[in-house]
Amino acid sequence: MRLLLFDNYDSFTYNLRSLLLKSDPDISVIVKRNRDISVFEECFDALIISPGPMTWTETGILKDLFDKRIVQDKIPVLGICLGFQFIAGYFGQTIERIENPVHGNTNAMLHKGDPLFRLIPSPFKAARYNSLGLKPVSANKGCLEYIAFETVTKNIMALKHRTLPVAGFLFHPESFMTGCGQTLVKNFMDIYVKGK
């Protein structure tokens, strides 16, 4: 099993790699930065999109990669923070400043029992590093389903695509402050990549 970890020049990418490697010792993770066109030659079983600075449209060749490979080949995708924002933006939602931006602290979140949250209590606590996100009431969800929310503001904290194997977390499973990060990543690997 080979994962492509798409690095948006972030400072948490290698925490994510460590979390992925711990979820399954047999996988390999290759890290490529978001301007590196050699990703188009890579063979991979899933794409993991790192967090990162700036906005979802400033993620190098990621849109191109989705246009040319991800959607048509139905490659499993997990996006974290900026990765979440990219997925929401790419599939038609508006990313904007949210009330209650949080950086370096945890929030309580509720999930709706989606299999991605198997074995995870609701509410659960997870670390946040974001100023941008999806407003709680989004008139047209389109092809996305929202599966976790911040308890107070009801901001959307996790989403998945209705038909493609694509999911995203706005919070940070790789932070040392997120206790359930390992389980979440393992759930993604089991359900989306290995098809268990």
Binding site: S11, G104, N105, Y129, E174, F176, M177
Partner: peptide
């Protein structure tokens, strides 16, 4: 101080990241 503890938390995650490039078993 929420501000100071959040700042420290960020830098802990950042240093974990940098250490994960060259170390195994990175622990706080």
């Amino acid at each position: 101080s929420k501000k100071d503890i959040a700042e420290l938390a960020m830098i802990v995650d950042l240093l974990r990241n940098d250490m994960n490039k060259i170390c195994s078993n990175v622990k706080v």
